[in-house]
Amino acid sequence: MTVPIAYYLVLSAILFSIGVGAFLVKRNIITIFMSIELMLNAVNLAFVAFSHQRHEVSGQLFVFFVMVVAAAEAAVGLAIIIAIFRARNTLNVDQVDLMKL
């Protein structure tokens, strides 16, 4: 009983697309940030699948580095969200549009 690697890649594509869709639809800045994390996870799955297919360890290490950078990014991003909430008193991205043309 085997599963084709292609199925893992298709699953990763589906997850990434759902992440893009949530990024476009959602108006809450925290949920938008969470959909970015979903996209990162989808790409990680593709990395692990290709690493399994090519018998390469470095693919998994790339995922490790993505995790580390995602953790740092989440800390800084959430601090920025807290700062925005202090300044504007809202989490809706439509009301944080000072730099919009």
């Binding site: 085997t2 690697i5 292609a6 297919q53």
Partner: peptide, 11 residues
């Protein structure tokens, strides 16, 4: 991906 299914192999 599905058209390259055979080349990608199985697990």
């Amino acid at each position: 991906y599905l058209s390259e299914k055979v080349h990608l192999g199985t697990t």
